[in-house]
Simulated scan of single mutants.
Amino acid sequence: MTSLKRLALTSALLALISGCSQDTDIEPAAAQRVEVQLLSAPEQVSARLFNGQVSVAEMTRMAFRIEGKLESLHVLPGQTVKKGQILARLDDDIPQQQWQDAKAQKELLQRQWQRSSVLLDKGLVAQAEFDELTAQLRLAKVNLKSADAMLTYTELRAPFDGVVDALEKQAYETVSPAETVMTLYRSDRTDVEMDIPDTLLSQAVNFIPNADYQPRVTVLGKQGELEMTYLEHALKLDEQRGSYTARLTAFGSDLGLLPGQAVEVLLDLRQAGLPATSGYRLPVTALQARGSEPGFQVWVLQGDSVQPVPVEVVQMGQEGALVVGGISSGDRVVTTGLSRLRPNKRVLVVEKD
Rank of each mutant, 00 (worst) to 15 (best):
A63N: 11
A63M: 09
A63Q: 10
A63F: 09
F64T: 02
R65N: 15
I66N: 08
E67A: 15
E67I: 06
E71I: 05
S72L: 07
L73H: 02
H74F: 12
H74P: 04
V75C: 01
L76T: 09
L76V: 09
P77N: 01
P77M: 01
P77K: 00
G78L: 02
Q79S: 02
K83E: 10
Q85P: 03
Q85I: 01
L87W: 00
R89K: 12
D93R: 15
D93Q: 14
P95W: 05
P95V: 06
Q97A: 15
Q98P: 04
Q100I: 14
D101I: 10
A104R: 13
A104G: 11
Q105G: 13
L108T: 10
L108P: 04
L108G: 08
Q110H: 12
R111V: 11
Q112T: 09
W113S: 08
Q114A: 12
R115F: 09
S117K: 09
V118R: 13
L120F: 05
L120K: 04
D121E: 15
K122T: 08
K122R: 14
V125L: 06
A126V: 05
A128H: 05
A128L: 09
E129Y: 07
F130Q: 07
F130C: 02
D131A: 05
L133M: 06
L137Y: 06
L137M: 10
L137A: 04
R138E: 14
K141R: 13
V142C: 04
V142T: 11
N143P: 07
L144Q: 12
K145H: 12
K145V: 07
S146E: 13
T152V: 08
Y153V: 08
Y153A: 14
T154N: 08
E155S: 10
L156C: 06
L156N: 03
R157N: 11
A158F: 01
G162D: 00
D165M: 03
D165N: 08
K169Q: 13
A171F: 05
Y172K: 13
Y172R: 13
Y172D: 11
E173F: 09
T174E: 14
V175G: 02
V175Q: 03
V175K: 04
S176Q: 15
S176L: 15
E179W: 10
T180C: 06
V181N: 00
R186K: 09
R189M: 09
V192D: 02
E193D: 12
D195C: 03
I196Q: 01
I196K: 02
I196V: 12
P197V: 02
P197T: 02
T199L: 14
L201M: 07
L201F: 05
S202D: 08
S202E: 06
Q203C: 05
Q203M: 12
A204S: 07
V205T: 11
